[in-house]
Design a protein around this nucleic acid. Structure first.
Lengths: 201, 201
DNA sequence: CCTGATTAACTGAACATGCGTTCAAAACAA
DNA sequence: TTGTTTTGAACGCATGTTCAGTTAATCAGG
């Protein structure tokens, strides 16, 4: 046997990526074999090499397109108030990551399985995303509405806090995503705002 | 050849655990072979099975003892002010995790490589640690010094934020760990405190 | 609408290598 | 001498990747 009925690269290609995404997220890159991906697609292992040079490239491509779409999706309005921009960032980050749990998981967990060159490229993309947030924080500090000692640290703290949502949030749980977004926004807002001057009436 | 000079289980045992900790953290559980661990110890692969039933148990033991020592090391004073207790938690968490980068990495990244039973036991330990923080937050809310809508969410947010330090902090970097601890404490304090009533003079 | 040639997609077997684990035999420690 | 610790070989099976061969889809010309 050889070519199978209905086979077409426009169809199989995305299915290979989807299967790899799912399996890498569930089991980890190193624990997934090419034969396992092939089985998920419904194809023999050899056929995968029409769609990727090797296993490593498959991982890299998944990470790269995740970060590309992350950067493309976030819209920031530099003319808006820093607090509004930050609120937008918080809500966007939580929503975007919630919608792509597998890609998020891979992008954070499988960095060590990248070759040094690929790692550097992924890190550069991640850095660009972090810079988008830091730009907002800097604007707020310059304007006086935010008070953080070090915008780089605050950037890392906020992103870690927001990304952590995906480790525990379940749609079937006690809270809706909207409620979670709102509560995280309140915490982030307070964390970066000027400290309270308690007005005792 | 068989038994080697100087061999002793009191020595080899800890070395096996140390080698596994190091390699699992650097390359991931699935990517490390028993032969690789053995080579690091300076022994043949078969000898490892004097110290662990199998590879899975080795991972579980490392995670369990990490979480055991985490729970044992954190000292909370229920009679102190909630803000002081929270400050203590923040500083402890950052310091403890900074001192054990490999164990932290494994405890967060390799959960999916545990069998269901082992996973449940590790999760229970983690939950107990989270509960320690939530207890502090609840005390502060009851007392009125903290203002968070949901203490469970705040707990997860704070822990994610603090644990994130280990993803970027380097001792050789721009900031000392003391400075980082202080800045994170300020952000956490503000995030959970009652919102500012801006006093315009 | 049919026929034949060409191209694209896939199979299945093979390659060398590595895997976790077991165990009889051997050598050291007490 | 007894008991502990390690070796080294072996087990069956899985790994990523390559490739000649085979079949389905596509296209050209009537």
């Amino acid at each position: 046997m050889a070519r199978t009925a209905g086979s077409h690269s426009d169809i199989t290609g995305p299915r290979v990526r989807a299967a790899a995404l799912k399996l890498f997220a569930r089991q980890g890159f190193a624990a997934v074999s090419m034969r396992e991906i092939a089985r998920e697609v419904g194809v023999q292992a050899g056929a995968l090499y029409n769609y990727t040079a090797d296993k490593q490239s498959l991982l890299f491509d998944l990470m790269q397109s995740h970060l590309d779409s992350l950067l493309a999706a976030f819209e920031d309005d530099p003319t808006a108030a820093p607090e509004a921009r930050l609120r937008q960032f918080v809500q966007f980050h939580i929503r975007f990551h919630h919608d792509r749990p597998d890609a998020v998981f891979i992008a954070y967990m499988e960095l060590r399985n990248l070759t040094p060159e690929n790692f550097a490229r992924i890190e550069a993309l991640r850095r660009r995303y972090e810079d988008r947030l830091e730009t907002i924080l800097k604007a707020g500090v310059a304007e006086g509405s935010f008070a953080v000692t070090d915008t780089k640290i605050a950037t890392m703290a906020v992103i870690a806090m927001l990304t952590g949502v995906s480790t525990w949030f379940r749609s079937a749980g006690r809270l809706s995503l909207d409620e979670v977004q709102e509560q995280y926004w309140q915490m982030v807002r307070k964390a970066v705002s000027a400290p309270a001057i308690h007005h005792v009436s």
